[in-house]
Write a protein that binds this DNA or RNA. Structure first.
Lengths: 238, 238
DNA sequence: GGCAGAACGTGATATAAGTCACATAACGAT
DNA sequence: ATCGTTATGTGACTTATATCACGTTCTGCC
């Protein structure tokens, strides 16, 4: 077997090194074996579209490696990014569980390894494995939470700088700081940031320039340096 | 036993007439009996607060009768309404399942009958009753969906009239029309509508006045008359 | 190394809608 | 009926930010 798109595929979940407790596939032995039997492993290149909003759900995808962008688009072409999916997370869970069309679009941002499970197989799996079902519920509740967070950001904030500050803080969450500030890797363009906080690309550029001038935060290439976290916190009104 | 707050309490889920298939408690006999054993039934007056954002989850509430307003408030006092909960729905499910603080506030809008289940009891119940766990997952996925819908409304629409039109259409969804248009009952003030679509009270008043003038829709008291649905659909860009 | 295509930076302008400030209307209790 | 309270209606003003338009810089690719 080759290594498609520069990825070394891990075919067997039972011996997979990528897994951690937080992964959806972080299941006890018995359930994991059942999972292993119904899943299909595949690799995708950057820019691949896994599913599009409006499609009937075929099943769920579990992200082993890579990043995936979840978005939704209005009839006039404006796009809003809902979330950047990290390894260990599941895509298409709500659509599959409730058998309603995917309401979001999933697109790989870089080469990814994924496990796919067909809807029928997955539902049977949940029915027969209580621990997996509970895990699915936890997963869904995390999705809800991040959705609520975004609703708060979009609905309750008064300005674009406030929303941007909130996003930067969210990113910096859990990162360590040195004397110069905290460093976070972000591989997003201003355009994409704008689509996350629901504003225009120009506003993001201008606001970032403002943050830089005020020594609050600097986004250079794909590294974000947060120099003055308290200032950001004041901006979000915390 | 009396009838607190003008409600006739139904104590026994097994013979409850309020239940339907879609209710969370619409469970097969075996699971329903287990549910019956761990639940506490209670009545609340209008305006009661069941839980507040930030509190540690005590457990879940199932709404039997009445309406409950879910909202979140920013540090400067601005409020956003996430949803009006209908009978049969469960509150506090994400917080309970993932053991994170409630991120929203729940307040009764009228006298309500609720079932409460303690967190421990509920988790045990889910673990031992696969069908209930799946139902919980479906419930959570519905919550996600409505959250995504609200994100779309807040993030992708260009104007307040557009968001209001979207909300009116959502309300009118599934109602029947006569020659004068469709009639929908809504028990919300302009202020509350503003808090749903994330705008100011004045803007709602002005926009509704505009809709009235253009013969698109009229909100009089608690009855909404939709006179020109296609016009609303044009406004949301459908 | 040079070129195309993205991504970023920045000014000028228009406008939707927030905010303040009141007037009027509806409603509920005594 | 009368009052207090809450809801609705409307004008005037201000401002954040979307939008357009363009120049500049970066980045991958032949």
């Amino acid at each position: 077997m080759g290594s498609p798109y520069g990825l070394e595929l891990v075919e067997n979940c039972l011996i997979c090194k990528l897994r951690t407790e937080n992964f959806f596939c972080g299941l006890p032995q018995g359930s994991l074996e059942a999972f292993e039997h119904i899943k299909f492993t595949a690799a995708y290149p950057a820019g691949a579209v896994l599913f599009v909003e409006g499609q009937a759900p075929r099943g769920i995808y579990m992200l082993c490696k890579g990043r995936i962008k979840l978005s939704t688009t209005s009839s006039d072409g404006k796009t809003l990014i809902l979330k950047i999916v990290q390894p260990g997370e599941v895509l298409g869970l709500h659509a599959t569980v409730s058998n309603t069309p995917y309401e979001i679009t999933a697109e790989t941002g870089q080469p990814c390894q994924l496990n796919f499970i067909k809807r029928d197989d997955f539902l049977r799996f949940l029915q027969t494995h209580g621990d997996a079902c509970l895990k699915a519920a936890q997963h869904l509740s995390r999705d809800c939470q991040s959705a609520y967070q975004q609703i708060r950001s979009l609905g309750l904030s008064h300005s674009a700088p406030e929303r941007l500050a909130r996003l930067l803080l969210e990113w910096s969450n859990g990162e360590s700081a040195d004397e110069a500030g905290m460093r976070v890797k972000v591989a997003l363009t201003h355009e994409e940031i704008a689509q996350i906080i629901g504003t225009s690309r120009e506003t993001v550029t201008r606001t970032l320039a403002d943050f830089r001038k005020k020594q609050i935060a600097v986004l250079k290439g794909s590294t974000l340096m947060i120099r003055n976290k308290p200032a950001l916190e004041r901006l979000v009104g915390a």
